[in-house]
């Protein structure tokens, strides 16, 4: 039985080896075509995910996803949670969003604080406070849907701040503690940034 199987295997192997060789003209055409195809580029591979086929979500699904992202941002934002605390440690004098520099409060004493304001009708929003010299252009916020946000390095301790909507309207943070009305007739928001030696 085993002898018959061996002979059959040898027969089929010999038959496969006898398959006709490609014609010389066809071989030359194939080599020519391959030579004309450009080699794959890194960039093309990198953007293949963008150019390739994909599942397209409906506009409604896209809107829902955007809203979910905003909701996550609002939920995570220390500004809208308790008293806006510390998110990520960041070295002093690191440029904040918008290219501004905040005076360093001492090496290692700064924390990155994310500010969020939901202002659907605004065309521009910035955050002003004692950490940026109350400069309305110092920390411009970026729009994400109806929400505006920016992350600013702030030294530890108590700080007061406000949002400036469309360059003129000062708005308190609706989720933060308020300070009593100041000499300029405004109630600033208060945040306490925890540090190594604050409790």
């Amino acid at each position: 039985m085993a002898e018959i199987e061996d002979r059959l295997a040898a027969y089929f192997a010999a038959e496969y080896r006898r398959s006709p060789a490609p014609a010389a003209a066809a071989r030359a055409r194939l080599v020519g075509r391959l030579a004309s195809v450009p080699p794959p580029r890194r960039r093309a591979r990198a953007f293949a995910w963008l150019l390739g086929p994909r599942v397209v979500l409906s506009p409604l699904a896209g809107a829902c996803a955007a809203l979910a992202l905003v909701a996550i941002g609002v939920a995570v934002s220390p500004t809208l949670r308790d008293t806006l605390r510390v998110a990520l440690p960041r070295p002093a004098s690191t440029p904040a969003a918008g290219g501004t520099r905040v005076p360093a409060g001492g090496a290692g004493s700064e924390r990155l604080v994310q500010f969020v304001l939901v202002a659907p009708g605004a065309s521009r929003v910035g955050v002003v406070g004692d950490f940026n010299g109350w400069d309305p252009l110092g920390s411009p916020m970026r729009r994400i849907g109806d929400a505006w946000t920016v992350a600013v390095p702030v030294s530890r301790g108590r700080h007061v701040y406000a949002f400036v909507v469309d360059g003129t309207r000062w708005v308190s943070d609706p989720a933060a503690p308020l300070a009593p009305e100041d000499e300029f007739g405004f109630r600033k928001s208060v945040m306490v940034v925890a540090g190594a030696d604050s409790t």
């Binding site: 010299g133 109350w134 309305p136 100041d182 000499e183 300029f184």
Partner: peptide, 28 residues
């Protein structure tokens, strides 16, 4: 002293009058 400087700068940003800024700083 930083809160005094901050108050003055806040007044400047809000367009407060000079008298008001000085008064706010002294009160603080």
């Amino acid at each position: 002293d930083e809160p005094l400087i901050s108050t003055a700068l806040e007044g400047a940003s809000r367009g407060a009058t000079p008298d008001r800024i000085v008064r706010a700083v002294r009160r603080l």
